[in-house]
Design a protein around this nucleic acid. Structure first.
Lengths: 238, 238
DNA sequence: CTTCTTATGTGCGATATCGTGCGGAGACTC
DNA sequence: GAGTCTCCGCACGATATCGCACATAAGAAG
């Protein structure tokens, strides 16, 4: 079981590593179960670990408890989080938590940084993912500035779908409202609109994607660019 | 005149360098005049240079010509741009241009990367700025999601003021509307509201800040955190 | 001084989204 | 199988922002 074998790993970043880099960090990877609402970090808390998901979805959120908040990033097994350690900081003003339960590996910052300082290839791969995550955030800012709720919701469902096995996404309207910083009722009615267009099916506790292409067409320019950038920066190296 | 002397430089990142790091890159710094609307890069264009401003303000924008667009980052002499080269990428889906004319230095990516690979201290400083810029973008996404126009506008004016000498900011309502992805008329009327609160004075072609503290209070939680993060990550190292 | 261009001011109906309140329905508990 | 909790549906007035049309004003050009 430990250290994990590279052939067993599903996280795309870990999969992209050279055997040599993988062998260096594998002994320090600690398998961890990540239930729903698991808190990876909170604002200004010193983060000790970087998490590589194998399944499930995490959210990066700006805001303060009891006040306004909004999601500014989402990640699954295509990446890792938090990204700050790679940039020489020890904390960031974000909360990061599991939005869909899953599992993964975590590794102490010190170990991943040591490995990265010994391998240019590893360091560059990790930094390219940081870049991809940053582009995702930039397009979230763009979408928030220019899109109507219908587009923002469609974009969010697509990003979630990309990180899910199957077409069913477990979530409540209330949760979606918090992520997008809109009213729960607006989520409900907008989901009905999308359902009316046969793009999704929405029932208590989940949304099922029915027409990805239709959703993508609906989002216009907000969805797609970050995803292509990710493929350009990361996947093509596999 | 060349290479520039460290004591003459006003860019905060360059100022923060050790003498040794500065001496390594100084011979490659090329002084450049940056008029209004100067295009630093466009989407997917291979960027060859990194720009360190000495004066003026640059904007990072997502969007496509003739379509929707929105600003996702702003920088002056406290940083540099673009940030992608540091992360191992050669381009990014952003446009970057001068919004307020100024001047600065540019350095070929190859030179700064060579210097960064030889100096952990330099690399970490540059990456910490990348982190600070990324946090700014995250809070722009947050502000776009949760704030009304009045707050977004106030936040934008504050960020601009931080990067300007004096209290007068030259810009048109039209330009501001494009940056915030709102109507020019909404800018006009909202500036009137801020003026009514004696926070600014607005006249043809410029806005003058009159009450910074008042503006900051107005923005609530959207303004301030990225700025504190910048100071924590960068300035305290001076 | 006149003309031209760019920037700003204003009005108004249309639309998107919000805040609030409440009712119903699925699921879980005892 | 009654109580309870969470999630969802619906209505409605209030507010923010938009889109469009047009008027005025400041500065530039001649």
């Amino acid at each position: 079981m430990f250290p994990p074998k590279k052939s067993d790993v599903r996280n795309k970043i870990l999969m992209s590593l050279s055997d040599r880099d993988f062998d260096h960090i594998a002994p320090h990877l600690e398998s961890i179960d990540l239930p729903k609402r698991f808190l990876i970090t909170t604002p200004d808390k010193i983060g000790d670990y970087i998490y590589f998901l194998e399944s499930g979805i995490g959210s990066v959120v700006v805001g303060y408890p009891g006040g306004k908040s909004a999601e500014i990033g989402i990640f699954g097994r295509e990446g890792f989080s938090p990204t700050v350690a790679l940039q020489g900081a020890d904390s960031a003003p974000f909360s990061i938590f599991m939005q869909v339960a899953g599992a993964g590996y975590r590794i102490a910052n010190a170990h991943i940084l040591a490995a990265a300082s010994n391998s240019l290839e590893l360091r560059n791969l990790l930094l390219r993912y940081v870049q991809a995550a940053s582009i995702q955030t930039a397009y979230t800012a763009f979408s928030n500035a220019t899109d109507h709720i219908e587009q923002r919701l469609a974009r969010w469902l697509l990003m979630c779908h990309d990180r899910t096995d199957g077409d069913k996404i477990d979530l409540t309207h209330d949760f979606l409202g918090v992520m997008l910083a809109i009213r729960r009722q607006s989520v409900t009615t907008t989901l009905h609109v999308l359902e009316g267009k046969h793009l999704i099916v929405s029932q208590r506790g989940f949304v099922a994607i029915r027409d990805r292409a239709g959703l993508e067409a609906l989002t216009g320019s907000s969805y797609g660019v970050p995803e292509r950038e990710y493929r350009r920066l990361i996947s093509q190296t596999i």
